[in-house]
Design a binder for these strands. Structure first.
Lengths: 193, 193
DNA sequence: GCATCAAATTGACCGGAGTCGTTTTTTATT
DNA sequence: AATAAAAAACGACTCCGGTCAATTTGATGC
Protein backbone atom coordinates (compact mmCIF):
# COMPACT_ATOMS: atom_id res chain seq x y z
CA UNK A 1 0.00 0.00 0.00
CA UNK A 2 2.81 2.44 0.80
CA UNK A 3 4.44 1.70 -2.52
CA UNK A 4 1.08 2.22 -4.22
CA UNK A 5 0.54 5.59 -2.58
CA UNK A 6 3.97 6.71 -3.71
CA UNK A 7 3.89 5.39 -7.24
CA UNK A 8 0.25 6.16 -8.07
CA UNK A 9 0.92 9.68 -6.83
CA UNK A 10 4.11 10.03 -8.86
CA UNK A 11 3.16 8.56 -12.20
CA UNK A 12 -0.54 7.82 -11.97
CA UNK A 13 -2.36 4.54 -11.93
CA UNK A 14 -2.00 3.36 -15.52
CA UNK A 15 1.68 4.16 -15.72
CA UNK A 16 2.45 2.11 -12.66
CA UNK A 17 3.15 -1.51 -13.48
CA UNK A 18 2.71 -4.33 -11.02
CA UNK A 19 6.38 -5.13 -11.52
CA UNK A 20 7.34 -1.61 -10.46
CA UNK A 21 5.01 -1.80 -7.51
CA UNK A 22 6.58 -5.09 -6.47
CA UNK A 23 10.07 -3.73 -6.76
CA UNK A 24 9.23 -0.59 -4.80
CA UNK A 25 7.67 -2.72 -2.09
CA UNK A 26 10.69 -5.02 -2.11
CA UNK A 27 8.68 -8.15 -2.84
CA UNK A 28 8.03 -10.43 -5.78
CA UNK A 29 5.24 -9.90 -8.26
CA UNK A 30 3.42 -13.02 -7.16
CA UNK A 31 3.38 -11.87 -3.56
CA UNK A 32 1.27 -8.88 -4.48
CA UNK A 33 -1.33 -11.19 -5.92
CA UNK A 34 -1.61 -13.08 -2.67
CA UNK A 35 -2.82 -9.86 -1.04
CA UNK A 36 -4.78 -8.29 -3.89
CA UNK A 37 -6.71 -10.10 -6.55
CA UNK A 38 -6.11 -7.54 -9.27
CA UNK A 39 -4.52 -4.23 -9.99
CA UNK A 40 -7.89 -2.54 -9.66
CA UNK A 41 -8.30 -4.00 -6.20
CA UNK A 42 -5.16 -2.15 -5.19
CA UNK A 43 -6.70 1.04 -6.50
CA UNK A 44 -9.89 0.55 -4.52
CA UNK A 45 -8.01 -0.30 -1.33
CA UNK A 46 -5.94 2.81 -1.90
CA UNK A 47 -9.03 4.96 -2.33
CA UNK A 48 -10.77 3.46 0.64
CA UNK A 49 -8.03 4.93 2.82
CA UNK A 50 -7.75 8.22 1.00
CA UNK A 51 -11.46 8.83 0.87
CA UNK A 52 -11.97 8.11 4.54
CA UNK A 53 -9.49 10.89 5.21
CA UNK A 54 -11.06 13.26 2.73
CA UNK A 55 -14.52 12.63 4.08
CA UNK A 56 -13.33 13.48 7.55
CA UNK A 57 -12.04 16.75 6.17
CA UNK A 58 -15.30 17.51 4.41
CA UNK A 59 -17.19 16.78 7.58
CA UNK A 60 -15.14 19.40 9.39
CA UNK A 61 -15.81 21.99 6.71
CA UNK A 62 -19.57 21.45 6.77
CA UNK A 63 -21.27 24.22 8.68
CA UNK A 64 -24.52 22.97 10.20
CA UNK A 65 -26.40 26.15 9.43
CA UNK A 66 -25.72 26.09 5.68
CA UNK A 67 -28.51 25.16 3.29
CA UNK A 68 -28.84 21.64 2.00
CA UNK A 69 -27.80 22.75 -1.46
CA UNK A 70 -24.65 24.37 -0.16
CA UNK A 71 -23.71 21.32 1.84
CA UNK A 72 -24.21 19.05 -1.11
CA UNK A 73 -22.27 21.37 -3.34
CA UNK A 74 -19.35 21.45 -0.93
CA UNK A 75 -19.37 17.70 -0.56
CA UNK A 76 -19.55 16.85 -4.23
CA UNK A 77 -17.11 19.51 -5.35
CA UNK A 78 -14.54 18.23 -2.87
CA UNK A 79 -15.14 14.79 -4.26
CA UNK A 80 -14.91 16.10 -7.79
CA UNK A 81 -11.62 17.82 -7.11
CA UNK A 82 -10.18 14.68 -5.63
CA UNK A 83 -11.36 12.39 -8.37
CA UNK A 84 -10.31 14.66 -11.18
CA UNK A 85 -6.95 15.70 -9.79
CA UNK A 86 -5.73 12.98 -12.10
CA UNK A 87 -8.29 12.47 -14.84
CA UNK A 88 -7.31 8.95 -15.78
CA UNK A 89 -7.05 7.83 -12.19
CA UNK A 90 -10.51 9.15 -11.45
CA UNK A 91 -11.91 7.47 -14.51
CA UNK A 92 -10.67 4.09 -13.45
CA UNK A 93 -11.94 4.64 -9.93
CA UNK A 94 -15.40 5.74 -11.00
CA UNK A 95 -15.71 2.92 -13.49
CA UNK A 96 -14.91 0.43 -10.78
CA UNK A 97 -17.18 2.14 -8.27
CA UNK A 98 -20.24 2.48 -10.46
CA UNK A 99 -19.98 -0.72 -12.45
CA UNK A 100 -17.95 -3.09 -10.31
CA UNK A 101 -16.96 -6.57 -11.32
CA UNK A 102 -18.25 -9.31 -9.08
CA UNK A 103 -14.85 -9.47 -7.38
CA UNK A 104 -14.89 -5.78 -6.52
CA UNK A 105 -18.41 -5.47 -5.23
CA UNK A 106 -17.47 -5.58 -1.56
CA UNK A 107 -14.85 -2.88 -1.99
CA UNK A 108 -17.02 -0.53 -3.96
CA UNK A 109 -19.81 -1.03 -1.45
CA UNK A 110 -17.54 -0.13 1.43
CA UNK A 111 -16.63 3.13 -0.25
CA UNK A 112 -20.24 3.81 -1.12
CA UNK A 113 -21.19 3.24 2.48
CA UNK A 114 -18.73 5.93 3.55
CA UNK A 115 -20.68 8.28 1.33
CA UNK A 116 -24.04 7.14 2.47
CA UNK A 117 -23.02 7.77 6.05
CA UNK A 118 -22.24 11.39 5.29
CA UNK A 119 -25.37 11.83 3.25
CA UNK A 120 -27.64 10.45 5.92
CA UNK A 121 -26.25 12.81 8.49
CA UNK A 122 -26.86 15.77 6.25
CA UNK A 123 -30.29 14.62 5.17
CA UNK A 124 -31.46 14.13 8.73
CA UNK A 125 -30.43 17.67 9.58
CA UNK A 126 -32.20 18.94 6.51
CA UNK A 127 -35.34 17.05 7.37
CA UNK A 128 -35.32 18.57 10.81
CA UNK A 129 -35.04 22.00 9.31
CA UNK A 130 -37.94 21.28 7.01
CA UNK A 131 -35.77 21.41 3.88
CA UNK A 132 -36.42 17.80 2.87
CA UNK A 133 -39.41 15.53 2.66
CA UNK A 134 -39.65 12.92 5.39
CA UNK A 135 -41.53 10.40 3.30
CA UNK A 136 -38.62 9.56 1.01
CA UNK A 137 -36.28 6.81 2.12
CA UNK A 138 -32.72 7.83 2.91
CA UNK A 139 -31.32 5.51 0.29
CA UNK A 140 -33.54 7.13 -2.32
CA UNK A 141 -32.41 10.58 -1.32
CA UNK A 142 -28.82 9.42 -1.70
CA UNK A 143 -29.72 8.10 -5.11
CA UNK A 144 -31.20 11.37 -6.29
CA UNK A 145 -28.22 13.44 -5.31
CA UNK A 146 -25.58 10.97 -6.27
CA UNK A 147 -27.32 10.44 -9.59
CA UNK A 148 -27.08 14.12 -10.34
CA UNK A 149 -23.42 14.10 -9.41
CA UNK A 150 -22.75 11.09 -11.60
CA UNK A 151 -24.33 12.72 -14.60
CA UNK A 152 -22.35 15.89 -14.09
CA UNK A 153 -19.14 13.92 -13.71
CA UNK A 154 -19.94 11.92 -16.79
CA UNK A 155 -20.64 15.10 -18.71
CA UNK A 156 -17.25 16.35 -17.64
CA UNK A 157 -15.54 13.20 -18.84
CA UNK A 158 -17.25 13.41 -22.18
CA UNK A 159 -16.41 17.08 -22.53
CA UNK A 160 -19.95 18.43 -22.33
CA UNK A 161 -18.94 20.30 -19.18
CA UNK A 162 -15.48 21.72 -19.56
CA UNK A 163 -14.46 23.51 -16.41
CA UNK A 164 -14.84 22.96 -12.71
CA UNK A 165 -17.15 25.96 -12.71
CA UNK A 166 -19.37 24.43 -15.35
CA UNK A 167 -19.71 21.39 -13.15
CA UNK A 168 -20.49 23.46 -10.09
CA UNK A 169 -23.12 25.49 -11.90
CA UNK A 170 -24.78 22.39 -13.29
CA UNK A 171 -24.87 20.72 -9.92
CA UNK A 172 -26.31 23.79 -8.30
CA UNK A 173 -29.03 24.11 -10.88
CA UNK A 174 -29.96 20.47 -10.84
CA UNK A 175 -30.07 20.28 -7.05
CA UNK A 176 -32.47 23.17 -7.08
CA UNK A 177 -34.61 21.48 -9.71
CA UNK A 178 -34.60 18.16 -7.90
CA UNK A 179 -35.75 19.85 -4.73
CA UNK A 180 -38.53 21.84 -6.29
CA UNK A 181 -39.56 19.09 -8.67
CA UNK A 182 -39.81 18.79 -12.43
CA UNK A 183 -43.57 19.04 -12.54
CA UNK A 184 -45.11 22.41 -13.20
CA UNK A 185 -46.51 24.15 -10.16
CA UNK A 186 -50.25 24.23 -10.55
CA UNK A 187 -50.40 27.89 -11.42
CA UNK A 188 -48.03 27.60 -14.37
CA UNK A 189 -49.87 24.80 -16.09
CA UNK A 190 -51.49 25.08 -19.52
CA UNK A 191 -49.68 28.19 -20.61
CA UNK A 192 -49.03 26.49 -23.95
CA UNK A 193 -48.93 28.93 -26.85
CA UNK B 1 -18.35 -5.82 -37.71
CA UNK B 2 -20.09 -9.00 -38.85
CA UNK B 3 -17.48 -11.11 -37.12
CA UNK B 4 -17.91 -8.97 -34.00
CA UNK B 5 -21.67 -9.42 -33.97
CA UNK B 6 -21.21 -13.18 -34.23
CA UNK B 7 -18.42 -13.63 -31.73
CA UNK B 8 -19.55 -11.09 -29.13
CA UNK B 9 -22.93 -12.76 -29.24
CA UNK B 10 -21.47 -16.25 -28.93
CA UNK B 11 -18.86 -15.84 -26.24
CA UNK B 12 -19.26 -12.31 -24.98
CA UNK B 13 -16.97 -9.37 -25.31
CA UNK B 14 -14.17 -10.25 -22.92
CA UNK B 15 -13.83 -13.80 -24.17
CA UNK B 16 -13.40 -12.66 -27.73
CA UNK B 17 -9.78 -11.97 -28.63
CA UNK B 18 -8.72 -9.67 -31.39
CA UNK B 19 -6.90 -12.60 -32.95
CA UNK B 20 -10.14 -14.59 -33.07
CA UNK B 21 -11.97 -11.61 -34.49
CA UNK B 22 -9.33 -11.23 -37.18
CA UNK B 23 -9.45 -14.89 -38.10
CA UNK B 24 -13.25 -14.91 -38.24
CA UNK B 25 -13.16 -11.87 -40.47
CA UNK B 26 -10.47 -13.46 -42.63
CA UNK B 27 -7.98 -10.64 -42.20
CA UNK B 28 -4.79 -10.02 -40.25
CA UNK B 29 -4.75 -8.62 -36.75
CA UNK B 30 -3.14 -5.41 -37.88
CA UNK B 31 -5.88 -4.74 -40.42
CA UNK B 32 -8.45 -4.51 -37.66
CA UNK B 33 -6.44 -1.76 -36.07
CA UNK B 34 -6.48 0.28 -39.25
CA UNK B 35 -10.27 0.45 -38.93
CA UNK B 36 -10.68 0.57 -35.14
CA UNK B 37 -8.32 2.17 -32.68
CA UNK B 38 -9.00 -0.26 -29.86
CA UNK B 39 -11.07 -3.24 -28.87
CA UNK B 40 -13.46 -0.98 -27.00
CA UNK B 41 -14.00 1.04 -30.14
CA UNK B 42 -15.29 -2.09 -31.81
CA UNK B 43 -17.72 -2.50 -28.94
CA UNK B 44 -19.01 1.03 -29.26
CA UNK B 45 -19.36 0.79 -33.01
CA UNK B 46 -21.24 -2.46 -32.48
CA UNK B 47 -23.57 -0.84 -29.96
CA UNK B 48 -24.13 2.20 -32.08
CA UNK B 49 -25.75 -0.03 -34.66
CA UNK B 50 -27.62 -2.20 -32.22
CA UNK B 51 -28.93 0.69 -30.18
CA UNK B 52 -30.17 2.60 -33.18
CA UNK B 53 -32.28 -0.43 -33.98
CA UNK B 54 -33.51 -0.85 -30.43
CA UNK B 55 -34.38 2.79 -30.13
CA UNK B 56 -36.45 2.54 -33.25
CA UNK B 57 -38.31 -0.33 -31.65
CA UNK B 58 -38.88 1.57 -28.43
CA UNK B 59 -40.17 4.50 -30.38
CA UNK B 60 -42.78 2.27 -31.97
CA UNK B 61 -43.89 0.93 -28.63
CA UNK B 62 -44.32 4.37 -27.08
CA UNK B 63 -47.97 5.30 -26.94
CA UNK B 64 -48.35 9.09 -27.08
CA UNK B 65 -51.13 9.13 -24.50
CA UNK B 66 -49.15 7.36 -21.77
CA UNK B 67 -47.89 9.33 -18.79
CA UNK B 68 -44.35 10.63 -18.74
CA UNK B 69 -43.42 8.15 -16.02
CA UNK B 70 -44.69 5.24 -18.05
CA UNK B 71 -42.84 6.34 -21.12
CA UNK B 72 -39.63 6.74 -19.20
CA UNK B 73 -40.10 3.40 -17.55
CA UNK B 74 -40.63 1.67 -20.87
CA UNK B 75 -37.62 3.35 -22.38
CA UNK B 76 -35.22 2.65 -19.56
CA UNK B 77 -36.39 -0.87 -18.92
CA UNK B 78 -35.88 -1.72 -22.59
CA UNK B 79 -32.44 -0.26 -22.29
CA UNK B 80 -31.84 -2.14 -19.09
CA UNK B 81 -32.84 -5.42 -20.63
CA UNK B 82 -30.54 -4.89 -23.55
CA UNK B 83 -27.57 -3.81 -21.49
CA UNK B 84 -27.91 -6.56 -18.94
CA UNK B 85 -28.68 -9.41 -21.34
CA UNK B 86 -24.99 -10.06 -20.92
CA UNK B 87 -23.85 -8.55 -17.64
CA UNK B 88 -20.19 -8.24 -18.48
CA UNK B 89 -20.85 -6.87 -21.91
CA UNK B 90 -23.15 -4.23 -20.47
CA UNK B 91 -20.62 -3.30 -17.83
CA UNK B 92 -17.95 -2.60 -20.39
CA UNK B 93 -20.39 -0.63 -22.50
CA UNK B 94 -21.63 1.51 -19.62
CA UNK B 95 -18.12 2.16 -18.38
CA UNK B 96 -17.12 3.38 -21.79
CA UNK B 97 -20.28 5.41 -22.19
CA UNK B 98 -20.24 7.15 -18.84
CA UNK B 99 -16.50 7.62 -18.39
CA UNK B 100 -15.03 7.56 -21.87
CA UNK B 101 -11.37 7.82 -22.67
CA UNK B 102 -10.41 10.78 -24.81
CA UNK B 103 -10.32 8.53 -27.87
CA UNK B 104 -13.85 7.30 -27.32
CA UNK B 105 -15.54 10.58 -26.59
CA UNK B 106 -16.98 11.01 -30.08
CA UNK B 107 -18.44 7.53 -30.08
CA UNK B 108 -20.02 7.76 -26.67
CA UNK B 109 -21.42 11.16 -27.58
CA UNK B 110 -23.00 9.77 -30.70
CA UNK B 111 -24.77 7.11 -28.70
CA UNK B 112 -25.78 9.63 -26.05
CA UNK B 113 -27.20 11.82 -28.75
CA UNK B 114 -29.42 8.98 -29.90
CA UNK B 115 -30.82 8.96 -26.40
CA UNK B 116 -31.17 12.66 -26.12
CA UNK B 117 -33.15 12.68 -29.34
CA UNK B 118 -35.68 10.29 -27.88
CA UNK B 119 -35.83 12.12 -24.60
CA UNK B 120 -36.43 15.48 -26.16
CA UNK B 121 -39.34 14.18 -28.17
CA UNK B 122 -40.93 12.72 -25.05
CA UNK B 123 -40.24 15.77 -22.93
CA UNK B 124 -41.75 18.12 -25.46
CA UNK B 125 -44.93 16.08 -25.50
CA UNK B 126 -44.97 16.05 -21.72
CA UNK B 127 -44.51 19.80 -21.57
CA UNK B 128 -47.40 20.28 -23.93
CA UNK B 129 -49.56 18.13 -21.70
CA UNK B 130 -48.50 20.15 -18.68
CA UNK B 131 -46.67 17.24 -17.10
CA UNK B 132 -43.29 18.92 -17.15
CA UNK B 133 -41.94 22.34 -16.32
CA UNK B 134 -41.05 24.51 -19.27
CA UNK B 135 -38.36 26.49 -17.51
CA UNK B 136 -35.88 23.61 -17.27
CA UNK B 137 -33.52 23.11 -20.19
CA UNK B 138 -33.95 19.91 -22.16
CA UNK B 139 -30.41 18.82 -21.42
CA UNK B 140 -31.08 19.21 -17.71
CA UNK B 141 -34.22 17.13 -17.93
CA UNK B 142 -32.24 14.44 -19.69
CA UNK B 143 -29.72 14.64 -16.90
CA UNK B 144 -32.28 14.16 -14.18
CA UNK B 145 -33.84 11.10 -15.71
CA UNK B 146 -30.65 9.55 -16.98
CA UNK B 147 -29.05 10.17 -13.60
CA UNK B 148 -31.76 8.20 -11.91
CA UNK B 149 -31.34 5.40 -14.40
CA UNK B 150 -27.57 5.36 -13.90
CA UNK B 151 -27.93 5.06 -10.17
CA UNK B 152 -30.41 2.23 -10.49
CA UNK B 153 -28.17 0.43 -12.95
CA UNK B 154 -25.19 0.94 -10.71
CA UNK B 155 -27.15 -0.40 -7.76
CA UNK B 156 -27.94 -3.47 -9.84
CA UNK B 157 -24.29 -4.01 -10.71
CA UNK B 158 -23.28 -3.72 -7.08
CA UNK B 159 -26.05 -6.08 -6.00
CA UNK B 160 -28.13 -3.56 -4.06
CA UNK B 161 -30.95 -4.14 -6.50
CA UNK B 162 -31.19 -7.79 -7.35
CA UNK B 163 -33.97 -8.39 -9.82
CA UNK B 164 -35.34 -6.63 -12.84
CA UNK B 165 -38.43 -5.90 -10.78
CA UNK B 166 -36.38 -4.22 -8.07
CA UNK B 167 -34.92 -1.97 -10.70
CA UNK B 168 -38.32 -1.16 -12.19
CA UNK B 169 -39.79 -0.34 -8.80
CA UNK B 170 -36.88 1.89 -7.88
CA UNK B 171 -37.06 3.74 -11.14
CA UNK B 172 -40.77 4.24 -10.79
CA UNK B 173 -40.47 5.57 -7.29
CA UNK B 174 -37.59 7.89 -8.08
CA UNK B 175 -39.24 9.28 -11.20
CA UNK B 176 -42.25 10.13 -9.10
CA UNK B 177 -40.09 11.81 -6.48
CA UNK B 178 -38.09 13.74 -9.04
CA UNK B 179 -41.29 15.05 -10.57
CA UNK B 180 -42.90 16.10 -7.33
CA UNK B 181 -39.67 17.35 -5.79
CA UNK B 182 -37.71 16.44 -2.70
CA UNK B 183 -38.74 19.51 -0.75
CA UNK B 184 -41.68 19.25 1.60
CA UNK B 185 -44.91 20.73 0.31
CA UNK B 186 -45.63 23.80 2.37
CA UNK B 187 -48.36 22.16 4.39
CA UNK B 188 -46.14 19.33 5.59
CA UNK B 189 -43.37 21.53 6.89
CA UNK B 190 -42.39 21.75 10.57
CA UNK B 191 -44.13 18.62 11.65
CA UNK B 192 -40.95 17.67 13.52
CA UNK B 193 -41.62 15.74 16.71
C1' DG C 1 3.96 -4.18 -70.55
C1' DC C 2 6.65 -1.81 -67.19
C1' DA C 3 7.91 1.52 -63.55
C1' DT C 4 6.49 4.24 -59.72
C1' DC C 5 4.18 5.48 -55.86
C1' DA C 6 0.46 5.45 -52.39
C1' DA C 7 -2.56 2.70 -49.73
C1' DA C 8 -3.76 -1.41 -47.54
C1' DT C 9 -2.44 -5.62 -45.28
C1' DT C 10 0.20 -8.39 -42.41
C1' DG C 11 2.14 -11.02 -38.49
C1' DA C 12 6.33 -10.92 -35.67
C1' DC C 13 7.02 -8.43 -31.78
C1' DC C 14 6.40 -5.77 -27.28
C1' DG C 15 4.78 -4.64 -22.69
C1' DG C 16 2.08 -5.59 -18.91
C1' DA C 17 -1.55 -8.17 -16.16
C1' DG C 18 -2.27 -12.23 -14.09
C1' DT C 19 -1.02 -17.64 -13.13
C1' DC C 20 1.29 -21.49 -11.25
C1' DG C 21 4.73 -24.89 -9.92
C1' DT C 22 8.75 -24.44 -7.22
C1' DT C 23 11.46 -22.75 -3.43
C1' DT C 24 12.03 -20.50 0.92
C1' DT C 25 10.46 -19.31 5.42
C1' DT C 26 7.75 -20.06 9.43
C1' DT C 27 5.45 -22.80 12.72
C1' DA C 28 4.48 -27.04 15.25
C1' DT C 29 6.02 -31.49 17.07
C1' DT C 30 8.96 -34.88 19.02
C1' DA D 1 18.18 -30.01 17.27
C1' DA D 2 15.84 -32.54 13.80
C1' DT D 3 11.76 -33.27 11.11
C1' DA D 4 7.57 -32.57 9.16
C1' DA D 5 3.89 -29.78 7.66
C1' DA D 6 1.85 -25.39 6.51
C1' DA D 7 2.29 -20.71 4.80
C1' DA D 8 4.37 -17.20 2.23
C1' DA D 9 7.22 -15.62 -1.44
C1' DC D 10 8.81 -15.93 -5.85
C1' DG D 11 9.65 -15.12 -10.86
C1' DA D 12 9.41 -17.64 -15.25
C1' DC D 13 5.65 -18.17 -18.04
C1' DT D 14 1.18 -17.43 -20.60
C1' DC D 15 -2.05 -14.68 -22.73
C1' DC D 16 -3.73 -10.75 -25.04
C1' DG D 17 -4.14 -5.91 -26.60
C1' DG D 18 -1.76 -2.99 -29.28
C1' DT D 19 2.47 -1.44 -32.51
C1' DC D 20 5.24 -1.14 -36.53
C1' DA D 21 8.54 -2.23 -40.19
C1' DA D 22 8.16 -4.95 -44.12
C1' DT D 23 5.41 -6.63 -47.84
C1' DT D 24 1.57 -6.91 -50.99
C1' DT D 25 -1.89 -4.80 -53.70
C1' DG D 26 -3.60 -1.55 -56.79
C1' DA D 27 -3.80 2.66 -59.24
C1' DT D 28 -1.53 5.92 -62.63
C1' DG D 29 1.43 7.32 -66.33
C1' DC D 30 4.34 6.33 -70.09
Amino acid sequence: MEAAITLFGERGYENTTIAALAEAAGVGKGTIYSYFRSKNEILLAFCEEELAYIHEEIRRKLTPEASLQDKMLLLFMSEFNYVTKNKEFGRTLMREMMFPRELMVQHSRKIEDQFIGMFVRIFKEAQEQGQLRRDVEMIMLCGHFYGIYMIALSAWYSGRLQSEDDVRESLKMMFEQALTGLMPKDGQRHESA
